[in-house]
Design a protein around this nucleic acid. Structure first.
Lengths: 236, 236
DNA sequence: CGACACTTTGATTTAGCTCAAACATAGTGG
DNA sequence: CCACTATGTTTGAGCTAAATCAAAGTGTCG
């Protein structure tokens, strides 16, 4: 395990929302330039190295985050100390929705799995704007809904069936809605924590898939997927 | 499996919200009598027999529901036809939050596990009122948040660890925030679908718990729990 | 009473866990 | 530059919890 770097080290300046390439696909999609002009709160940008944690369970939740690039994992811990990854967030996903509820804390540890860029904005901003901008309100609800259906999918798809099926489904999930079938895999330990299996089983299964050419390793831990055959495995 | 009864048979009249015993604990907690007077949409009440489904996956989501008594399960199906129960809803819980998103469909099958009373109200009502009543807005967000953290808990608590642990955690969950340690169990099949184990394993584990007096059967399928010892099992 | 649905129990098999060792790969520092 | 550690991956061997398959038991309802 890489030890967590502090967030302070990761600061990379204030965000330039107006010219943001993601502007149409993120939470603030509905806002106009004038709306942005009215935002006086600082929107900061961070470059997270793998292993850096953005926030931890129980931290006072007063910011929300947009992932610009990279991947974050959301982790929960069991009483016995073992961890379970309950979701991942990728480009254009929002982290820390729970900050909408005033006075609450974050429900997970959010940790970068790859070099990851995020924008941070005060939840207050969304709470205040929300009242006047119904589009934002709607977008927010839809984000919440998406998080929920992701959570359900992790239960039904990634925590049900054999290890082979789970891994196949995880792989397919990583390239869904992507042009190419290329994907960067996670550490075996993380895959285990996502799927509720051991690192050894994850490793063995990946090895088996490689042998059967369901996965072709293009560079260390980057793969091309045989989507049709993985699909076959995924649904038994 | 009991075959689904149609909802039409379950209608039991219009609800009397003003005098509802749950008024302070449900979604509309913040509303005044005058607010209720302004509601002209019908709020209907239904008595569901076990096995009756309230709605199905993909049905046009235009109503939300409050559970007055009983238990409902939320079910999702896998491509191979097997089912997984992703959540349950009990007294004062809200079903069908996804109806807030206009034009969408329900994400689950909602099926009664016990004789269950629910109130049904148009989602439009909440959408409309939401704009003017910030308390309702806040309550709604908090409901959404609760659903999400329930979903996470099902993954971390009920789909992780040995069968004994999962069953112990499920049992404890059933009596949490209750005055007594008494609870009514579900069918072994449903328990299996909640925990990702087979009916046989569920049955064997319950039998084992009975032998060890962690469970005392007071009447058919009703039990008193030995909470401290179940807790010990739950956390390893 | 007989039929049906569900539960329990038993016997057997197996997928995945555990423990352990070998194998990368990348830093680190002399 | 190379030894040396550290961190993660792979592979093996054996064990065990849970799945599977099958049969007997229990309760409920027409």
């Amino acid at each position: 395990m890489v030890r967590g770097v502090t967030l302070r080290d990761a600061w990379s300046g204030e965000a330039d929302c107006i010219n943001c390439s993601l502007r149409t696909s993120v939470l603030f999609a509905g806002l106009t330039e004038t709306d942005f002009a009215e935002i006086h709160d600082p929107i900061d940008q961070f470059n997270l190295k793998p292993g850096t944690s953005l926030y931890r369970t129980g931290d006072a939740a007063d910011h929300m985050f947009t992932v610009r690039s990279g991947v974050m994992k959301l982790v929960q811990y069991l009483p016995d100390g073992s961890q379970r990854i309950v979701r991942i967030a990728r480009t254009a996903d929002v982290l820390g929705l729970e900050a909408m509820i005033e006075g609450g804390g974050y429900q997970h540890d959010a940790v970068a799995l790859q070099p990851t860029e995020v924008c941070r904005f005060p939840a207050r901003l969304v709470r205040d704007l929300g009242c006047s901008k119904p589009e934002l309100q709607r977008e927010l609800l839809s984000r919440w809904q998406r998080a929920l259906s992701e959570a359900d999918a992790w239960l039904t798809e990634l925590s049900t069936g054999s290890a082979r099926q789970r891994i196949a489904r995880l792989l397919l999930r990583l390239v869904r809605d992507r042009e190419s079938s290329a994907c960067q895999l996670f550490s075996r330990e993380d895959m285990g924590a996502m799927l509720g299996i051991t690192t050894e089983t994850a490793s063995r299964t990946i090895a088996e898939f490689k042998r059967k050419s369901l996965l072709v390793e293009t560079s260390p831990n980057r793969f091309l997927l045989d989507i049709p055959n993985l699909n076959r495995i995924a649904q038994e």
